[in-house]
Simulated assay, not measured.
Amino acid sequence: MSPTLSEIGAAKYVLLTTFRKDGSAVPTPLWAALDGDRLLLWTVTDSWKVKRIRRNSRVTVAACDVRGNQKGDAIEATAVVLDDAGTEHAREVITRKYGILGWLTIKGSLLRRGKSGTIGVAVTAP
């Protein structure tokens, strides 16, 4: 039986798989937190995964460990890059889930990259 988005969102790390133009998969382990019926992720604005999501919103998500080793089945989903307000909300939700480590990581990133240096991504499953 396939896991639900909420089961995957409960994991410490989530394996987000985006797809290149040729269809090849590119998996990336990320922090993620549930926000209602969607999964919010946070990443560097100019990363290739963001460029791939803007071109093709089809992704898969699965629970994984810190090294990206998948734990369980992946599910098909749709990802969308968030605006500034959505990104700020993603930062808040991720900080809540990951506690002091999340707060330190996000604040350090804001100091290093500024607010526009990172961006939120929302993932929904059909």
Rank of each mutant, 00 (worst) to 15 (best):
T105M: 12
D35E: 15
V93Y: 07
S109L: 12
R38F: 02
D73L: 10
L41P: 01
W103V: 10
V66K: 15
S47Y: 05
V81K: 01
L39W: 00
I53E: 01
Y98F: 13
G86P: 06
S47L: 09
A62Y: 01
L110W: 00
I94D: 04
W48H: 11
R96D: 14
T43S: 12
W48L: 13
A79M: 08
T95A: 13
E76N: 12
C64E: 06
C64T: 13
G102E: 10
S47F: 08
D46I: 12
V44W: 11
T43W: 00
R96G: 10
N69P: 04
D73E: 14
W48I: 11
W103K: 15
G117V: 03
G72H: 08
D73N: 10
D84A: 15
T95L: 01
R91A: 14
T118F: 07
I94A: 07
A85W: 04
R54D: 06
Q70E: 10
A74F: 11
G108A: 03
R55V: 05
S116Q: 14
E92K: 14
V44M: 11
T78V: 15
V61E: 00
V44S: 06
R38I: 00
V61N: 01
G36H: 05
C64S: 06
R58Q: 11
K107M: 07
T105V: 02
Y98P: 00
D46W: 07
L111R: 11
D84H: 14
L111H: 07
I106W: 05
Q70P: 02
L82F: 01
L82A: 09
K51F: 12
V66E: 15
G117I: 03
D73F: 03
V93I: 15
L101P: 03
V61A: 05
Y98M: 00
G36Y: 04
V50T: 09
L104V: 11
G86S: 12
V50Q: 02
A63P: 00
R38S: 11
G108F: 01
I100S: 14
G102F: 11
N56F: 02
W42H: 11
V81Q: 04
